[in-house]
């Protein structure tokens, strides 16, 4: 198993994916240590990443990310 982090970019943020992928973007685990570094990896401006979930739990920019984790990043969404 490769040591990768999975990144989902939703609500239009998929435009920051090199492959234009919404789900299942892969980042080598040794290239990023924190949520902030994941944003930098995809060059997503901070203000666009309004909700960040790591394995479904809300996370902050400084939270550690480890291989095997799934990071989901959303812009401002609403409705209901």
């Amino acid at each position: 198993m490769t040591a990768e982090i999975t990144v989902n970019l939703y609500g239009g943020l998929e435009r920051y994916s090199p492959e234009g992928l919404r789900k299942g973007n892969r980042v080598p685990g040794d290239q990023v240590n924190t949520v902030r570094e994941v944003l930098d990896y995809f060059e997503i401006p901070r203000e666009e990443a309004r909700i960040i979930l790591v394995d479904g739990h809300h996370a902050s920019l400084e939270d550690q990310v480890n291989p095997g984790k799934v990071i989901s990043i959303f812009p401002l969404v609403g409705g209901g």
Binding site: Y10, L53, F74, V77, G79
Partner: peptide, 19 residues
């Protein structure tokens, strides 16, 4: 714009990832 572009269905992926 976001509600106009996607309507309330924009919530689905967030709600799913949040379990």
């Amino acid at each position: 714009s976001r509600l106009e572009e996607m309507g309330t269905s924009m919530l689905v992926n967030l709600i799913n990832e949040a379990g």
